[in-house]
Design a protein around this nucleic acid. Structure first.
Lengths: 217, 217
DNA sequence: CCCTGTGAAGCAGTTCACAGCG
DNA sequence: CGCTGTGAACTGCTTCACAGGG
């Protein structure tokens, strides 16, 4: 599709952080951003910022820095943020409901346009202006709303079934909170967030006090 | 403190997944687990499982596999899961409340023992059997309850202040959901979970359809 | 003279392939 | 003979250090 030059995974994972830093700089009135400025806000070193940004193309000016607006546009282009990406949340338990209420997605270009659950108590209920629809209608829900991202917020034992249904329905990527490994085609990228796992990882570093560090992507 | 042999970060991040897989095998009646079994359930390859587990010591039996119970004990020891680790959640917005209700922590050895907020609407409220206490009393809350992990579920602009207060109060590690970079001493390990960032990362891979993959730690 | 862009060196993590033990 | 444990090769990421343009 795009003739983009293939960006390393580690760099991709940092682009959103640079984006956030850049927005901060812009809103505080800066029109240019040096790699040192960005490094500072993003919590990494300047060499890494420059190497990372070089994968987007040559948008810096030697002796000056990066044009802030221009760089923001380039990052957005790389991340596919030029257009809004509609999202469906499957699973209206505590987490799913919290995600539905959470404004952070909306404002970052990922409007939540549908909520889905399999239980009769939940279906029909109105949450944050949306009516919860039934899991059996997922395919229709996805196609009618042009949904491209599915968020799985169900218990582990339902997750694979939900995942299969989302893929069948045609979502193009998945974010899962279910503590289980999902089987799915390589063509559908997944990100996994597992809260208990995060705490367990901290346990290791906490135990070896004076601990080095425990960075997350 | 512990004479443990220092486990690579990438391996530490996978131990919780192996643990989960192991528990699954045990509960389905297996008493031994081969690296291939675990690899299968954990979604990685067998060589990686063996290399990872070798950092814990030599607990496998050639020709047979690993003793499931024994391996579980070793993983728990490495992750410091032998004892319960009490947790405080700071920030009782949507996310904080959802986390407070979420049973997954309790059952994995991380009981939530205190909830904290700075707003008068929230303080005093009862959520899931706990009364929300005031942010100003954080130090006392932490020490009285022997809390060692703090979860930050506040908006970005409050996060640094909360982080500082948690560190001062003596928590030994932090899990943050706030979309901002935190400044804190190396002695306190942090993990960051940023939901909007995850979606933005997916955007990149989704865009280059047929996409390689987007793995999370 | 400042700050970018990048080869080259260094380091960490993964995968391979096989020796070795039960 | 099966499955672990591990050196060795390899791949990818980070850091360094500096050449080069404004």
């Amino acid at each position: 599709m795009s003739g983009l030059p293939e960006i390393p995974d580690a760099t991709v994972a940092r682009l959103p952080i640079y984006r956030r830093s850049l927005v901060q700089l812009i809103s505080s009135g800066e029109s240019t951003a040096s790699s040192a400025d960005l490094a500072d806000l993003a919590g990494v070193n300047a060499a890494k910022v420059r190497k990372d940004l070089s994968y987007l193309g040559t948008y810096g000016v030697r002796g000056v820095g990066y044009d802030a607006e221009m760089l923001l546009i380039q990052i957005d282009r790389a991340l596919g943020l030029e257009f809004e990406t509609p999202v469906v949340i499957v699973g209206m338990g505590n987490l799913g409901q919290a995600l539905a209420h959470y404004g952070g997605f909306q404002s970052k270009g990922f409007p939540i346009v549908a909520l889905v659950d399999a239980s009769d108590d939940k279906v029909g209920q109105e949450i944050d202006g949306l009516t919860v629809s039934h899991f059996d209608d997922l395919a229709r829900t996805v196609s009618e709303n042009g949904i491209s991202v599915g968020i799985i917020a169900t218990p582990a034992d339902a997750a694979q079934k939900v995942c299969d249904a989302l893929v069948d329905a045609g979502v193009r990527s998945i974010l899962t909170f279910a503590p289980t490994v999902l089987q799915l085609p390589d063509s559908v990228p997944v990100r996994k967030v597992d809260l208990a796992t995060e705490l367990q990882i901290l346990g290791y570093y906490q135990q070896r006090e004076g601990g080095e560090d425990a960075e997350t992507a």
